[in-house]
Each structure stands twice: as C-alpha cells, then as structure tokens.
Simulated scan of single mutants.
Amino acid sequence: MIASFRTLALLGFLACVLGMAFALYLEHFRGFEPCPMCIFQRVAMIGAGLVFLAAALHGPRGFGRWVYALLAATVSGIGAGIAARHVWLQSLPEDQVPACGPTLDYLMDMMPLTEVVRLVLEGDGNCAVIDAQWLGISLPGWTLIAFIGLALWALIAPVLARRPGW
C-alpha cells in the first residue's frame, strides 16, 4: 500500500527528529562537542525537518506537493554540501589542515553573521578531527548520507503519494 503525502512527509520529519536526537545524544551523553560545521549541519537538519513537518500539516495537493518537495530537497542539499565540505576537511593530510579557530559563540559575538558563515564554511582544525567512526565512515560522512537520503525522499514523496488529490 502506498501512503498519503502527509504520511510520507511525516516520515521525513521523523527521520530529521531521529537525526537530531542522535546528535544531541552524542553531545550530552557521549561527550562529543560539536564543531561549528556540525552546528551548521544541525541547523540544516532542523530546517529540513520543519519543511517536512509543514508539508505533513498542510497536506498540499498537486503542484503544492512539489513546492514542499523542492524546499525540503534544497535544504537537505545545503546540509549535504556542508557535510561534504566537512568530510573533505577530515580527509586532508595533517599538514594541510587549517589551524584551529575560535568557538562559534566567540565568532558570533565579534563578527557580522555573513563573515561568521564564511569562516565556518571554510572550516578549521576543529572540524578536521575525526571523533568517531562506524563502518569506517566518520560522523559527518553519515550525516552526508542522511542528507542525500532526505533529499531523495523529498523528491520521491510526491511520486509515491497515493493519488494526486489525496
């Protein structure tokens, strides 16, 4: 049985909630301190979750489904881009890793937002540290996989939805 668009959007939202719950578990119960790029990935995960939630609550028909799908896919794509940059930083040889920088809180206090975003996306030595791996893939690698899955789910949901009018 193929589900309704609302149900499919709700599943996308729940995937984002699980992703955020896991990130918070790692931070608060396992002691992994998120680097600035990790925080930006969390913002993208929350953004994708909010788009999926809005789609589930609204339950659009026809073209409206594609609007939500493209919004969720775009936010997930932005998250995937940040995660890919993070994975790239982690793959650099040790002598090419950028120097460690100040914390995100300090940057936000001292600089305009656009400059903070630019600096964080450049990355620093904190972002190149691999704290944990599973199956040989680092946490940002798994986040990249999750964002790709969310983007694909967003684009598949309007197609899988039972009938155009439901």
Rank of each mutant, 00 (worst) to 15 (best):
L50G: 01
M20C: 10
P158M: 08
G125C: 05
L139M: 14
T143K: 05
Y25C: 03
G149S: 11
L8D: 04
Y68G: 00
L150H: 06
A56I: 04
L71P: 00
G49I: 00
D131H: 12
L11P: 02
F52D: 02
Q90Y: 07
R61A: 14
E33C: 04
A83M: 05
Y68M: 05
Q90I: 04
I46P: 00
F13T: 05
R6N: 10
Q41M: 15
P112C: 09
G77P: 00
C16G: 08
H86T: 10
W88A: 15
T143H: 04
L10G: 01
W66F: 06
A84E: 10
G141K: 00
F40P: 03
L135Y: 10
T143L: 12
F29T: 12
V87P: 03
W153M: 08
I130V: 15
A54M: 08
F13E: 02
A132G: 11
A48Q: 07
H28K: 15
A128H: 02
G62V: 04
L119E: 12
F13D: 00
T103V: 03
A55T: 03
R6E: 11
R85H: 10
L107A: 15
L71S: 09
A132I: 13
G149T: 02
L144S: 00
A154K: 06
V116P: 02
W166S: 14
L89Q: 02
I2P: 15
E122I: 12
L53K: 01
L155M: 12
A69V: 01
P140T: 03
G64P: 10
D131N: 15
Q41F: 06
Q96W: 06
G136H: 06
A56M: 05
E94Q: 15
G77A: 03
G49E: 01
W66N: 04
W153E: 03
W153T: 04
T103N: 08
L139K: 07
R85K: 14
C100Q: 14
C38S: 06
V43W: 11
Y25R: 04
R30I: 15
T74W: 10
A80P: 04
L113P: 05
V43Y: 13
M1G: 14
W166G: 12
G149C: 12
L107N: 05
V159C: 11
A15G: 07
L152R: 08
I82S: 00
G47M: 07
G136N: 04
V159Y: 08
A55C: 03
E115N: 09
A151L: 07
I145S: 11
L160E: 07
R162Q: 15
T7M: 14
Q41I: 14
L11S: 09
L92D: 10
A3F: 14
I156V: 12
I82K: 00
W153H: 12
C100F: 09
W153D: 03
A128M: 03
S4R: 11
Y25H: 13
V159H: 07
L121G: 07
A56E: 02
L8F: 08
M45D: 01
G149H: 03
A157E: 05
L8V: 08
F40M: 14
A157N: 11
R85V: 03
V120R: 00
W142E: 02
L92M: 12
F13H: 07
A84H: 09
V159L: 15
L107D: 12
L152I: 11
L144E: 01
A73G: 06
Q133S: 13
